[in-house]
Write a protein that binds this DNA or RNA. Structure first.
Lengths: 244, 244
DNA sequence: ACCAATTTGTCCGTATGTATG
DNA sequence: TCATACATACGGACAAATTGG
């Protein structure tokens, strides 16, 4: 048996780490809440008993994480937004050499369930937004870049009206990578018309709140995109990094 | 009136930002690859023409993002791993006051598709791992904490054998929040037996590669958990923050 | 529109601890 | 054991931008 422990195990983490942890705790505990300004660096340094340079190092981490945001000169407490997290996540997927096969499978599942929820919950405004998207795409059917970005917008609209933030967070990093792949497909096989037709069908079914129909058509639509990719001749099991 | 403006006001991002961007580009372009040591701070400072303090601020951001990792004294290039991204994402969901309804819906969809892929692809080793998990849970059915963590492990095992990293990334932040909720349920309604039975069924179907059966039972299982939560009397539309 | 105070951005120099050869 | 290289941390300084009177 060792002798009685007298001394606390003292800080192994570098000071700048303790600074960011400390501020983060402050935020999580609610002592600093959303939109509050952070104290000036000098004051933080004084309160925490470290040098201002050390404080700055700590703040950079939080800034990068999106927990504090620049508003003019000073920093204010913020909430990391999905899009930042999503872009970070999709970059991680690329670095992990995720394949199109993986993306396609995940996207099929997520876009389908998203569309089903949208069919349950969409309102008139949502229907109109989707129809505008269809109209736009119809008008620009020859411009591949427009079609691709309108395709992205279509799925994002569905996600918006699906009214589920957990699902949004889950699908965003994947759609961010999946749809660029759509561009590869479109530039090689001109399947814009096929995409537009699928979207039209889906909108019609969403309007009728026909969940089963939406499921069937979204699954068909996603399978179609996968087939398109296969027909480009690119190996499905090749990492996506070239596409990004 | 001022004289005619000729030069754009060049709005330079702060130097520390340029440092992190520069290093990040270096990594992404492959000029620094996985596991490489970063140059010493002094050398980075010299190469980039900024002060060492500035370099340090820039590095803190990358460190926080998981793009570089401290290995002993120096920093080496790393890949941000899912679990870090996932915990960040789930914390963001909490801050966004995501409700149990949203989590439950997303989890149902993601766990179901995960189980289906697992049924397609699992091997003997995977089956054995799942069966060990069942055995453990059966042995500890009275210890709620054990049951909850074994439940988490069960679903993580399915994800592992589903062999899809995009899906893993998508489900992790949600499962991280959803399963703590499982503990709330179990402490109020003793439904351990029901969970174990569902897991048993799913394993049997996964072994037979019965995708339709797996889909049906996983959907039932997730619906069951949702019902359990409802029966605790907690409002499904209340934010999850209290649970975490 | 001007001034003064505040706060950040950036730099310099230095001291200390700790791995590694 | 000793020397070197490197990260950590501190203190002080000044310019530039912002804010408030």
């Amino acid at each position: 048996m060792t002798s009685k422990t007298v001394f606390e195990k003292l800080d192994l983490a570098p000071a700048y780490r303790q600074v960011s942890d400390s501020v983060e705790k402050m935020i999580r505990s609610g002592r600093l809440s959303l939109g509050d300004w952070l104290p000036p660096e000098t004051e933080l340094a004084a309160q925490l008993g470290v040098n201002r340079s050390t404080v700055r190092e700590g703040l950079r981490g939080l800034e990068h994480a999106g927990l504090v945001r620049r508003d003019g000169k000073r920093l204010k407490v913020a909430i990391p937004h999905y899009t930042e997290l999503a872009s970070r996540a999709s970059r991680a997927l690329v670095m992990h050499q995720v394949t199109f096969r993986e993306l396609s499978e995940a996207a099929a599942a997520l876009e389908t369930i998203t569309a089903i929820f949208a069919a349950q919950r969409i309102d008139e405004g949502g229907i109109r937004a989707l129809e505008n998207n269809l109209k736009e795409m119809k008008a620009r059917l020859n411009d591949i870049d427009s079609v691709v970005s309108l395709d992205i917008e279509f799925h994002n609209l569905l996600a918006e009206y699906a009214d589920n933030r957990a699902l949004s967070l889950a699908r965003e990093p994947i759609s961010l990578l999946f749809y660029p792949a759509g561009k590869i497909i479109l530039t090689r096989l001109k399947t814009q018309k096929r995409i537009l037709d699928a979207h039209k069908r889906i909108v019609a079914l969403v309007r009728k709140h026909d969940e089963a129909g939406v499921r069937a058509w979204m699954e068909r639509h996603m399978a179609d995109l996968k087939r398109g990719y296969e027909r480009t001749g690119i190996d499905m099991n090749r990492p996506m990094d070239s596409a990004v």
